[in-house]
Design a protein around this nucleic acid. Structure first.
Lengths: 240, 240
DNA sequence: AGACCAAATATGGTCAGACCATACATCGAA
DNA sequence: TTCGATGTATGGTCTGACCATATTTGGTCT
């Protein structure tokens, strides 16, 4: 930079105040989020194409794409190539993927411990078991998983249906947020759960636990359901 | 496409099998995640520069950037411009931002209802209050928030310290996952909470609730703490 | 009229290369 | 030794091109 190019005093230090200059893709994010809030866009609606968005918002297509990548990561849009009514960026709502990735990466970085994940799962399942006992819903799904666990081909299949049973309890609560969190926890715990089953060797105690939980929910006995869940998870994942 | 360009039968239908061709940035993601898992990268470690990554992985810089954008969204990397030891993409761990955005956008898309968010918050706080009563930690922070709520300048400030009180309870559980979720819920609920306080008009009942919760935790009375939390949230956010 | 097939086209996915703004590193002059 | 100009590596952005895919379009043959 030569002396002549130097900006005059006074014109420098723009935005010396607090927050940094927003990046282009962040502006795009804000705009799209604004459309969702103001125009009431909902799941199924389509966004303009990447090229059109770039022109509308006066940014490059790269910046538009980075913004869309963020939205895709958050499970809010899904992009389809090709042509036609289904092509382009469509608004969706799948918080699950984001939660799963979040847990997986943070477990990898050792920022979260498996203990914390298990404890959180216990919290959700106890809460959900109480709800399920009061509403007595989802019993069919639970029974199906129970039956499937009776004759597993191996630890993998047992855990698969075991997880289905536990997820069914949470789904019965009717709360999509806790369900999404539970599914994310499930994905993070699966590998760990198989090891735990192999270590135990015998699944009969676990199945007896499941049947106690199921019976309590069926009978509308919330307190028993909650404590049965606690007993079960303490057996499957003993503290320390 | 002319007839001559047409691929010969048999060479067509590559990857007709199940999953689609991974996008370039997904390969990058997988590689970086592999490094984290295999090489034991942890918070504070730096990734190679974008240009170097692009060359190493044989993709364009755009694809590298999209992958980094995903990781940034998940709260796993943070990029700094400039030069020096702090510049470049650094591994971090802030699941909070991702969770917050996730909730905000899904609330905007009306996929999640405020009721579900409130119920989830109730679940976490009851659980955390029980833990806090058993461990009797975080009392100082709670007391500070309590005192600050006694003489608020307005609903905004009251809610600010109210939230600090509730977050302190969850932090006392020592579980970083539930804490992260709670903080994300807080950000989503803040606006809603201010409206609720304005509607109530009087914060004395709320403060009395807080003091009951605090006393129960201080005295190690888990059952009372749990029920006091339920009473409080039912008052602040009455069901229907 | 209908069925079928080839071309046109709109979409996201990728790439290469350039330039800018920023912030540290380096080195020379006072 | 100190301070300031210059160098340089970094992320951020833009442009323009090409590819792969899937629908739409329109013509041709039956």
């Amino acid at each position: 930079m030569t002396v002549d190019d130097r900006p005059e005093p006074g014109t420098v230090r723009r935005r010396a105040s607090g927050r940094p200059r927003p990046r282009a893709f962040e502006e795009v994010l804000a705009r799209i989020e604004g459309w969702i809030a103001a125009d009431g866009l909902t799941v199924g609606d389509r966004l303009p194409g990447e090229r059109q968005l770039a022109e509308q918002l006066q940014v490059s297509r790269s910046s538009v794409r980075e913004a869309l990548r963020v939205l895709e990561t958050l499970g809010v849009v899904s992009s389809q190539v090709g042509r036609g009514p289904d092509a382009g960026a469509v608004l969706t709502s799948r918080p699950g993927g984001a939660l799963t990735g979040l847990l997986r990466l943070n477990l990898g970085l050792a920022t979260l411990s498996m203990r914390e994940v298990i404890d959180t799962r216990l919290m959700i399942e106890q809460w959900a078991a109480g709800h399920a006992a009061r509403s007595r819903t989802g019993l069919d799904e639970m029974a199906r998983a129970l039956a499937a666990m009776d004759d597993p081909s191996g630890p993998e299949e047992f855990v698969e249906h075991d997880i289905a049973f536990h997820v069914a309890i949470v789904e019965a609560s009717g709360n999509r947020l806790t369900s999404a969190i539970m599914r994310a926890l499930r994905d993070s715990v699966q590998r760990f759960a198989i090891d735990a089953v192999v270590r135990l060797g015998d699944t009969r105690d676990l199945q007896a636990d499941h049947r106690r939980i199921y019976a309590a929910i069926r009978d509308g006995d919330a307190a028993t359901a909650v404590s049965a869940v606690a007993v079960h998870l303490a057996r499957a994942y003993p503290p320390d």
